[in-house]
Design a protein around this nucleic acid. Structure first.
Lengths: 373, 373
DNA sequence: GGCTGGCACTCGGTACAATCGAGTGCCAGA
DNA sequence: TCTGGCACTCGATTGTACCGAGTGCCAGCC
């Protein structure tokens, strides 16, 4: 327990005791309880006077006179910043994670979805898994498949295994051969280039083919902007118990339903180099009674999505941080392994040393996530 | 379902009044209120004695002595069965729906997801949209795309526009040419057949190709079983306000998170020919304080998924039925239109005549009756 | 000087009684 | 057969008293 900037060590210890206790009980904690906490060797009277100071400085608040204190957002912030050792998961939970990643299989999206289930299982908070972006991934295949006389489906496979599709209205009947020819031309032009850096296919001389090619090409270019970072929200029902005001629950759930908001929330937090955003810090008003824990996922040293947890501000930060970190590591390795089938697990990368400021990978360019209204 | 028919018209009217009032206020309703209801021309004393009978017969219940009555599941059931005219949406809502379906675009999955948003918007209940099954859809395209030296992605496009994918571990390096050859063979064998009735490709003579073909083929066969009907749950946050017990909310939300459960719930209800399942009727214990309204979606006369609403048993059935029906119709037309781009909207199919027991055959004998005198 | 124990005070929570009123069951009479 | 009237029930509300956790302050002690 080191001395921290503007709080002497005794105040820090008291604050820590209050936060810890409050996280456990959700009840305002009084000087008496603090006095009984381990590491505190002063009387309750002393603690009271310290608490007055902590309240004056904005670390604690009192729901009403003659009640104990509860931490403010600032109080939690201090507590989190002060955490030195990353929290540790229990052996049972650790094993759950290992088991999960040994056994999980299937498509990336499915895997991410299940990962979010795992995270919320581990922590009993709502979890959030942000899928890796695709802007850097090269196009492996483009295909036009006829679905009806005037409708074709454009299917794009990226090097990272993502598949995007979009149906195209051809406005008039196009024979299969033309579709195939167009498909081949688009494919040839896009092959091995990332979506962001496509080149236009040469004209073929056949007007119909060129028309279809142009249609497909424009959809392809749309993808470059639209290719969405999907977000998987796990276990939102956990939040029902986290707040006592039904209104709060409803508001939070409603916000979580807007995937766009969740994505930008996570992105914002990551961009600010935080791994924890508490209460109003993240600036999303409906979530002002929530805290968010985010950990970027890196695959082979590259930033690739993120995992996070969302709970009440009185969430168990050490545990949440530990869970997010462990899952993020496993997930990164697993995703790295996908493309090189059966590659031996690389040695565990060193965990970032502190609870905050894990600026992995530097700032990422802002990208649009697909809007769900 | 037993003796639901034997309510004389006065009892029916009283029951209807109780249900209507309770749906609106969520408060137990007393004989006085019923007496004031339109169409009721008897005194509260008479109503009281009728209510005693209704309670004895299980249509009403009393939270405690000297409180008003609330409908039981059986009471709601009678009320719903008795509905003759389908409820009508307000003009504003109707317009919302039309607008939505004029403007909606993009992939089917996205469309379904947004449709579920629309439904819950219209009704302020949680909504459920079940994607059409793919068993009958023919394979339009199968493609093996190399992702890494030892990994390929199998991408299948079905005639209805669905795209399924699965990565395949090739266990050893396979050159692109071999992949392409295998891809062509698998495609040739599967082309135009539904997933359920695949035939095995002929051996090619090249051992490596055949090995890859076999791998792909087995994955393809897996799809036949696994291709799951996706379900989109919209606006679960609406449920937070619907129940007062937090525990109930949590349980319901948790159940909704298990997509598998939701799918079979809907499937069960549809199979039993119901369009409404109330409380314990559907047999899913955690949802026993919920009611489900389901309407199948038909595309060109073929059953194709379903839309539904999930709310408290005291939900507004007429409105919910109307919303589900309207959205189902629009959705069916829209989906039908997808494959024949720009087909003119067919004239609105006649709505099913009754609120319940769509499969029950016989013409609806019962008529709603009013108090006389 | 800083810490401590003691003390008066505050105020939410609980327990209990009184009251209110919505609602019931029953019954005599039209 | 229905109705108005009546006695009764019981949850909800209000008021009062009290308990106890917690506070702020202060005099005294190390």
């Amino acid at each position: 327990m080191t001395d921290i900037q503007d709080l002497d060590s005794r105040k820090a210890a008291i604050l820590e005791a209050v936060v810890t206790e409050y996280i456990g009980t959700a009840q305002p904690v009084g000087s008496h309880h603090v006095a009984r906490a381990p590491g505190i060797n002063v009387s309750s009277a002393t603690i009271r006077s310290e608490m007055v100071a902590l309240e004056r400085d904005g670390y604690l608040a009192q729901p009403h006179t003659s009640a104990g204190r509860i931490p403010t957002d600032k109080g939690y912030r201090f507590f989190v910043d002060q955490l030195t050792e990353p929290g540790v998961l229990g052996p049972a939970q650790r094993q759950k994670v290992s088991r999960f990643f040994e056994q999980v299989h299937g498509e990336m999206e499915e895997m991410l979805e299940r990962t979010s289930g795992l995270l919320s299982d581990l922590t009993s908070y709502a979890s959030v898994v942000l899928s890796p972006g695709h802007e850097a991934a090269a196009v492996r295949s483009v295909q036009l498949v006829g679905l009806g006389p005037r409708v074709a489906l454009l299917v794009v496979v990226l090097a990272d295994g993502a598949v995007e599709k979009r149906s195209i209205d051809l406005t008039e009947e196009v024979p299969d051969e033309v579709l195939a020819a167009a498909s081949a031309r688009v494919q040839a032009a896009a092959q091995s280039r990332p979506l962001g850096a496509l080149i236009a296919p040469e004209p073929s001389g056949d007007a119909t083919v060129d028309r279809v090619v142009a249609l497909a090409q424009s959809v392809l270019e749309d993808f470059a902007n639209e290719v969405h970072d999907r977000v998987f929200v796990g276990g939102p029902s956990r939040l029902a118990a986290a707040f006592d005001a039904v209104e709060t629950v409803r508001g939070v759930l409603q916000t979580l339903e807007q995937q766009l908001v969740v994505v930008s929330l996570l992105r914002d937090v990551l961009e600010r180099g935080l791994s924890v955003a508490i209460g109003a810090e993240h600036g999303y008003e409906p979530l002002s009674s929530c805290a968010v824990v985010v950990t970027p996922v890196s695959v082979d040293g590259q930033a690739a999505g993120a995992v996070g947890l969302l709970g009440p501000t009185r969430m168990n930060y050490p545990e949440a941080l530990a869970a997010a970190r462990v899952v993020s590591e496993h997930l990164g390795q697993r995703l790295g392994g996908t493309l090189e089938s059966g590659s031996p697990g690389a040695p565990s990368p060193a965990p970032s040393p502190t609870g905050a400021a894990a600026g992995a990978g530097g700032p990422r360019p802002r990208r649009r996530a697909r809007g769900r209204r």
